[in-house]
Design a protein around this nucleic acid. Structure first.
Lengths: 339, 339
DNA sequence: ATGAAAGCGCTAACAG
DNA sequence: CTGTTAGCGCTTTCAT
């Protein structure tokens, strides 16, 4: 910004014929001011079109009233909706959000972390997917994760993924499926949706079949990878639980190309239940995550920690207890016609 | 942020046993420094885990290297992809973006405008939908609009909407449609997609039929509104050009519920061609906007104006010429099986 | 090659 | 009730 363009407190003070302090006081509505002074200042502010410089205000010390949100990409409906929900929840407390799209690249995530700290955000909500970044361990700042857990020392807000996995798999079985497959972006022991699937299979005496198509696979490469997995299993599986809705959509497309009837020959169920995908594909049966609730809770936890830090005793480490809390929200089955 | 936690320049200076200036110099790599000093300082920085306070840096004058992006909501794939593309284009020049979701509410848009100016962003890219906000006229800051035009005085980057409208309508006619309808979020003389539709209809001697479902209609209310429009036209129309893909998806769903075969009994074509919707609904025939190109151009124009402002003669208005440029990018027909 | 000091725009003691 | 003054953390003349 060119400083010739935006007026400053001093300009207002001169225009109103009072001191800086006085202007600052009416701005912040602090202390006793005569109505006459208030009016004079108000008029000067209006005349000059003055807007307080938040940068200067932030520098003074306290807070920036900005928090950072790191997600893989808001181009995916799930994270786009998370971002909007977080922004809304923050707005209620006068906070704003700096959204960072890591694109799943840990170098970018690291850069963003530094950027956010450099910009002195008051806290960070991370929903990115690099479990490994050691930087997170050394962050001297309130932080909360959403959707995926980062470390036992950092509070995590998520939906009840395991219950969701069970619910999805049970729904497939209830529809008559005998060999449900799992399609996920990363199969491992901590994948709770996968665990729900496996538990349900085991309880029903069914051998699990797990396919993996990495989360950050380019959209153009997905159909081929997916076909590679599924073609080999035709006749063996009779349903698919995809751990996100877009993957489920790709299964539907694969089935269409193979002339498989859904749900008669192949049942499909997804996960997420975002508004955008439901508008695009209302027939998809899926497990809905309560995005708004999750965002609100993440914000509540974060602001709580920020307040704790800011009101901590002035001397001494004052360490806020490291509550590595996990909050899980219940999911919901959305009936469509694909399962 | 609690200042006890993040070290400052002074801390580094003390640790390294040099002056503030020297540290600042090695940080910005300015002036002549002995290698020994550089090393000492570098070591101190590393030891303390020092990161420059960008807030202080920004206050000093120059720029914040942050630009504001205002969109209706990144929860919609089109704007989510715009946001990511803008962020990527900016990152190449060392800029970052403050994303603001107006949710189509002009009060929120106004608040965000003030927020951005208060935070001294270096410029603004607006893709929101409130053509009316008079604030835009008085902004003393580089600004560029994307997707929709705001004022003849503000540069606008968009796709060739009229050509897109023509292309879509021509595609419907080429498929055999005799009565194509338009479904749009706001019908008016400046709606260029609508104009393309009307022009094509007129050239073919066809009476246009226009349905309107407002952009910010709640998802839950859309199917009913849409059915209200379309039910009355069954038998009269044989195809629909929806001016965005999600609306097109809703038309497909309506057709499914009415047992209308697509494309035999009803042809449907959309607009946008976002990656997310194509993953969800790959069969949809649509007009693709070149989002990345648009974002890149918007950023190029904006950074150009920012540089112009910052290098303007120190005295005098120095007014940068008000180039109310319009840049249109060509669209592309994506063949699916719905038209 | 390095340092001292002024100031970016604002807030917050501390006077009066 | 209102003004003076000292910083917040950093960059940048101007000295040395």
């Amino acid at each position: 910004m060119d400083r010739r363009l935006e007026p400053t407190l001093a300009d207002v003070a001169k225009e109103a014929g009072v001191s800086l302090t006085t202007v600052s006081r009416v701005l912040n509505n602090r202390g006793y001011l005569s109505q006459a002074t208030k009016d004079k200042v108000a008029r000067a502010i209006k005349t000059l079109g003055y807007r307080p410089n938040q940068v200067a205000r932030a520098l003074h010390g306290k807070r920036t009233y900005t928090i950072g949100l790191i997600v893989p990409t808001v181009a995916l409906p799930f994270f786009g909706e998370i971002a909007v929900a977080v922004e809304n929840a923050l707005a209620e407390s006068g906070y704003r959000v700096l959204i960072c799209n890591s694109l799943g690249r840990s170098d970018r995530e690291r850069d963003y972390l530094n950027l956010l700290i450099g910009n002195r955000v008051d806290g960070i909500i991370s929903g990115a997917h690099n479990e490994d970044l050691e930087e997170y361990q050394s962050i001297r700042m309130p932080i909360v994760t959403i959707d995926r857990s980062l470390s036992p020392r950092i509070p995590n807000v998520r939906c009840d993924n395991e219950a969701g996995g069970r619910l999805a798999t049970e729904r497939l079985l209830a529809g008559g499926s005998r060999r449900p497959a799992l399609l996920t972006s990363r199969s491992h022991g901590l994948n709770l949706r996968e665990r729900g699937y496996r538990i349900t299979c085991e309880a029903a005496g069914i051998e699990p079949i797990v396919f993996e198509v990495p989360f950050h696979t380019a959209p153009a490469d997905r159909p081929a990878l997916m076909a590679q997995c599924l073609d080999g299993a035709v006749g063996m599986i009779d349903s698919v639980f995809a751990t996100d809705d877009l993957a489920a959509a790709e299964v539907l497309e694969w089935a269409r190309q193979r002339d498989l009837l859904v749900p008669e020959q192949l049942r499909v169920i997804g996960f997420d239940g975002t508004v955008a995908v439901r508008r695009a594909l209302p027939t998809l049966t899926t497990i809905r995550q309560p995005i708004e609730d999750m965002a609100r809770e993440a914000v509540r936890l974060l602001l709580g920690r920020i307040d704790a830090v800011n009101s901590a005793p002035l001397e001494g480490g004052a360490d806020i207890p490291e509550i590595g809390e996990i909050v899980e929200f219940p999911v919901e089955l959305l009936e469509g016609s694909t399962a």
